[in-house]
Design a protein around this nucleic acid. Structure first.
Ligand code: MN
Ligand code: MN
Ligand code: ZN
Ligand code: ZN
Lengths: 139, 139
DNA sequence: GTTTTTAATTATAATTATTATAATTTTGTA
DNA sequence: TACAAAATTATAATAATTATAATTAAAAAC
């Protein structure tokens, strides 16, 4: 079974015209689940695709966002990161190792009195601190 | 009563050496509560202080952050914004008018099973959507 | 299956944001 | 006032992003 074929269908299903570059970019984000930046995506893929242009990465990410098949997260420092998991979930960034961990939380448990008549379209919960790996290592 | 005098004391209390520029920058963020970007702060203050350098704004914001008298919020688009309210609180950005609203929420009500042994240092909750002003105007 | 049309990718240039460095000015202290 | 230290400013360098045009690839028409 070839994953690229599945991604090809997935893109078409979401009104994204498929191409070799687009499949590879989506594949990278979806498989690695590492919340990569534009530069990470480019640097990793240019190894496989030497002709790849960073412009294509920018354009493709913009298109994927418009079609809602990826989400953009700006956890800190002006560094935008991308995630193929578009469901609402939380992100934890470790100050030591820099890794970003996903976590689930119950959105409905948060009570908003001040903005209860506002139309909510997107929710982002970011937590920064030290992950358990780095915490135990320091002892 | 002169607010600048109070800010002067406040800065000293927080181990920040006071200066005319630093007082004006803190004053702008604290009084306007508009979560300004570097450019907003510079553009507004350069009207009063024609010799002001953007470098000073960058340096001062970095210093204020280190001393924890402001917080940096990166709600979207690679645009960093600054807030003199350093207590944990949520931010709502309206897609129509662009304004950012503060709201309170009870952090303890959110249950994190996956990261329950992680050391939490900072929490940011961002919500995007349409504010009630813009929502009623569109009807 | 070749030609034509359209769209995507690439290469390049332009713009913007940020950081680094050195010169100048200000502030505090003797 | 004179000196030393720090902050501010001016300028240059770097990095990130966007815009534009040329090239290549894909799709549609014939
Ligand atoms: Mn995620
Ligand atoms: Mn706020
Ligand atoms: Zn870690
Ligand atoms: Zn609004």
């Amino acid at each position: 079974m070839n994953l690229s074929v599945n991604i090809n269908d997935f893109l078409k299903l979401n009104e994204v015209k498929s191409s070799f570059q687009r499949i590879k970019i989506y594949e990278y984000i979806a498989e690695n689940k590492n919340h990569p930046t534009v530069n990470t995506i480019f640097d990793e893929l240019v190894k496989q695709i030497p002709t790849l242009s960073k412009m294509t990465v920018y354009n493709t990410l913009k298109l994927f966002r418009e079609k809602n098949i990826i989400q953009e997260i700006s956890i800190e420092d002006n560094e935008l990161r991308y995630d193929a998991n578009v469901k609402t979930h939380g992100h934890f960034k470790c100050r030591k190792c820099g890794e970003i961990f996903d976590f689930e939380y119950n959105n409905s448990e948060i009570v908003f009195t001040e903005i209860n008549n506002y139309k909510i379209e997107e929710t982002q919960l970011f937590i920064k601190g030290i992950c358990s790996n780095c915490f135990t290592m320091n002892k």
